[in-house]
Design a protein around this nucleic acid. Structure first.
Lengths: 185, 185
DNA sequence: GTCTATAAAGCGATAGAC
DNA sequence: GTCTATCGCTTTATAGAC
């Protein structure tokens, strides 16, 4: 770290990296110290409730990014097709073209989910609903729009899993392209 | 446990349950003892290399199940459409209609993957290749078959993630139905 | 094959000096 | 705000009795 005095705002992205790498239960405070350059003293100064509060701060950060970039664009873009196209561009950017996993997806798979149940649920629900709204405005029947949105969000998550399993981010790019074709051909 | 003397074969499914619940790094030997009823002495008798060897035994078991039921059926079924239909039935059965996660997908997401890299890679590769083979025999062009198989396997994984995030297994059932429609609708 | 006892290391968390 | 020292607990793993 360059600065001697850290700011919480600068630490959160680094925490996100550590949690993405090791998972929540696989992340130890010593690994956090390694990545952030902050000792336990500083970490507990910023996050009095320890590791769980650190993860919550990261999840807040993730939610805010998706709300600002993805969800609000889906809801507010007057051109549904353009909104969907923009979603795929943002998603590709955020997940670094398949080189980055989804922290909420990672938390969802084991019992970490239960510690962050509301956040995990809300993130995916918001995404599905915002996309379903856009699909309706693009002419899909309500039920069809809901199902298609759910299917799309699921496939994006699975593409991240499969890309990592093969250690090949191109898998993610291919699935994204296929999904975009299905939605706005 | 009813039996006083355990057999390795009986222990492996229980190990699978524990790893599915907590993830690999979230699983401790004391939790394994709770679930299996076996003390450290017995566990290290069966698995001298400890937790990693236990996970490997579980992964071997999973691979064998999928090879026997899913992959070989896809490769050998003379009727491609029937083979695909059977795959979805087997997958729905194995993942308990969305109530069970994929251990290899769970391992893939964090750095647990690196400890089981070959197994994780091979499982998904075998699945994609077997499905692509069937899709070709059903009339798809080679490249289209490969892409569709990859897309399908990814979506199945993502459906498991999304179902757990919503604590709603029905999500899994809906995505599976949608995929089957796309393939042999 | 199973158990208990034990070791050494690492864990999350706290206290207090600076 | 940052650090070091420390606490109490859990971890993986081993040893040895039965």
């Amino acid at each position: 770290m360059v600065r001697e005095v850290a700011e919480k705002q600068d630490v959160i992205p680094l925490l996100g990296e550590v949690f993405r790498q090791h998972g929540f239960s696989g992340t130890s405070l010593s690994q956090i110290t390694l990545r952030t350059g902050l000792g336990k003293g500083s970490l507990y100064h910023f996050f009095p409730n320890g590791k769980k509060e650190m993860a919550e701060a990261v999840l807040d950060d993730v939610e805010e990014w998706f709300e600002t970039h993805v969800f609000s664009n889906l809801r507010n873009n007057e051109n549904p097709k353009a909104g969907i196209k923009q979603m795929f561009a943002d998603v590709d950017f955020y997940f670094c073209s398949g080189n980055r996993i989804c922290l909420l997806g990672s938390f969802a798979l084991d019992d970490t989910r239960d510690q962050f149940a509301t956040r995990v649920n809300t993130y995916f629900t918001s995404w599905c609903e915002a996309l379903a709204d856009t699909l309706k405005r693009n002419g899909l029947a309500p039920k069809k729009a809901t199902d298609t949105a759910e299917f799309t969000v699921a496939s994006i998550q699975g593409a991240l899993v499969l890309a990592r399993s093969q250690d090949d981010p191109k898998v993610f790019t291919r699935v994204l392209k296929c999904l975009q074709n299905q939605l706005i051909g």
